[in-house]
């Protein structure tokens, strides 16, 4: 179960011309591995993540989530695919203010019409704080809940957008370690966008993005 992008091109309207954010990007992220995407600001990292998350349709090219081509799915089918197969860890934890840590996880199953558990909180070391709401948690703790939430529906693909930008270096490293270990434990295909090259030690593949083009190394 992997994530595959084949020759994905994405443009945004820019005045009377179009701005090319992604230029024929190829990416293969095997299950159980972490691919880090690095690059300067404006190079297209968030755009790449948005395409992989099915939040924007590319102008051309193909996205396969665990062998399923995304092309041609309607909005409902895309929402269902996001619920079941894609986990997203946002840059800001983006937790819902009214929900406790445990409920942030349980709502994910509820979106899919099932009863959910919050067992995964233990895996990210948050079992003790399960009853707290986001405003009662530190930035790092919120990010842990964020990761557990992304994994709770057992997705095939995990997309992580600059998870450490709100954290100090030590906490940031701990979060990247957590992402790496859960990727291996759950066998998901993980894309990790980061600007912090110090976090690249444990990842399986690093992709450099410059002006919307991939430079592998």
């Amino acid at each position: 179960m992997s994530l595959i992008l084949r020759s994905v091109t994405l443009t945004y309207p820019d005045g009377d011309r179009r701005l090319t954010a992604l230029d024929a990007v190829d990416l293969h992220v095997p299950a159980g591995t972490v691919t880090a995407v690095v690059g300067p600001s404006g190079s297209g990292k968030s755009s790449l993540l948005a395409v992989a998350a099915t939040l924007v349709r590319p102008d051309s090219g193909e996205v396969l989530v665990g062998e399923t081509p995304v092309h041609g799915m309607d909005r409902r089918a895309l929402a269902a695919l996001r619920r079941r197969s894609i986990g997203i860890v946002f840059q800001q934890p983006n937790l819902l203010p009214a929900l406790t840590a445990a409920e942030q996880l349980r709502v994910m199953a509820h979106l899919d019409g099932r009863r959910g558990t919050a067992d995964l909180l233990a895996e990210v070391g948050m079992a003790e704080l399960a009853h707290r709401r986001p405003h009662q948690l530190s930035g790092g703790q919120r990010q842990r809940v964020n990761i557990a939430r992304a994994l709770v529906n057992r997705p095939r693909v995990l997309l992580v957008d600059e998870p450490t930008s709100a954290l100090d270096h030590a906490r940031g490293a701990a979060i990247v370690d957590l992402i790496t270990s859960t990727t291996r434990a759950h066998g998901v295909a993980t894309v990790l966008v980061t600007h912090d090259r110090a976090h690249l030690a444990g990842v399986d593949q690093v992709v450099d993005l410059v002006d919307g083009r991939v430079r592998s190394r």
Partner: peptide, 16 residues
């Protein structure tokens, strides 16, 4: 609307 965007990104259908 920020929370709604998050829920949609997480896969909540508009009907839900």
């Amino acid at each position: 609307s920020g929370d709604i965007a998050v829920l949609k990104a997480l896969g909540a259908s508009t009907g839900y």
